[in-house]
Design a protein around this nucleic acid. Structure first.
Lengths: 192, 192
DNA sequence: CTCGATTGTCTAGCAGTGCTAGGGTCGCCG
DNA sequence: CGGCGACCCTAGCACTGCTAGACAATCGAG
């Protein structure tokens, strides 16, 4: 049994290595540079090894996305927990979200921009994604306003953040006004 | 001179054909299906002809994006012109925007999701893009609220629309609540 | 009307992509 | 210690964006 367990451990370790390497490579040189050949070379295995862990490149992106979702959830919760009052909590949440997107562009792409083969808004949505949404929801529900469904409000707030994050990073919005846009967003959307 | 003019006309016509075909193919089967080979075959020329009109695939995407920007500008202006009162005007604008994104997913991708090699928020931003932003701005300025810079407000409103459009189309947001999210967005962001 | 030059187009090919079939080599278990 | 099974790598497929060089059609000059 011990042999099998060791192999299992090694396999799991290598899988983590693949995901971590893909993420690192993507952050360094962009997802276009993450080819199966380069990735295989970096982990010092041949290409087919990748396919014994993942169905294809898409699944690797998906794995990075799940990792990112978990991190984003904790980042959001941490920021919200360190703030006092509903208004500050929401502002801190928004800042944490945009900060995460800016500091982990490749991971953010994996989550929302690229096709990681992940299901959303369904029964079989992976847990980390549901949890990331929950992290937003649990801090935004109190400012949704009377008669407004908290989930619907969260979806809208999330969409606004997502729009700001992507448009800013793509150079569509001047970066220097990010904070002002964020303040405006919170002031308008959140019902204190 | 007439000979050169005819050639010039034929060249321009073929360029329009390339862009139209790329757009059509993208709408039918997605941008992944728009390969230089397939595109060349559809216009009944060989691949190198494409490169005598555009520097590469990226520029073709950019051309589709510019075409789309012009159409979106007129769609937004048309919708806004047909509405009475500031609140209705903003709602109509938002509806037109999301409608455009939903009905022309490939064009919307070319504009905001893919790399069309276009400059944004700079001096040398192509006119159609600036004009599309202007179409939003001229209808949103009146609801920006006191002391809020109209351009900044427009950027925020645009980002929210963009987030709704992309997340909905990617299956991240349930489509059936689109209208309710839109109403909420207008009610909260716009100062009537 | 003919001939050279120029313009335009095509065929063929490059390097690189994601992915997979097949053979070999290793380490484990009886 | 022998045979077997799991594992991994080499080699290759069909495809991508893009380009060099050959070829043909067209034009302007004599």
């Amino acid at each position: 049994m011990s042999v099998q367990e060791r192999k299992e451990r090694e396999r799991a370790g290598r899988e983590r290595l693949i995901v971590a390497t893909a993420r690192e490579l993507a952050e360094q040189q962009g997802w276009d540079a993450v080819t199966t050949r380069r990735l295989a070379e970096r982990i010092e295995y041949s290409q087919p090894v990748l396919y014994s862990h993942f169905r294809g490149k898409r699944e690797i992106i998906g794995a990075v996305a799940l990792e990112g979702a978990a991190e984003m959830a904790t980042a959001v919760r941490g920021a919200a927990a360190g703030a006092n009052g509903a208004r500050d909590r929401v502002a801190a949440l928004a800042r944490a979200y945009l900060d995460f997107a800016e500091r982990n562009p490749a991971v953010y792409d994996a989550m929302f921009q690229l096709d990681g083969g992940l299901a959303f808004a369904h029964e079989d949505t992976p847990a980390p994604l549901k949890d990331a949404f929950a992290a937003l929801l649990e801090n935004l529900a109190e400012v949704a306003g009377d008669g407004v469904h908290p989930a619907l409000f969260t979806e809208l707030f999330w969409a606004a953040l997502h729009g700001l994050a992507t448009l800013t990073r793509a150079g569509r919005l001047p970066p220097e006004d990010t904070e002002r846009r964020l303040e405006l967003l919170v002031d308008r959307l959140a019902v204190v």
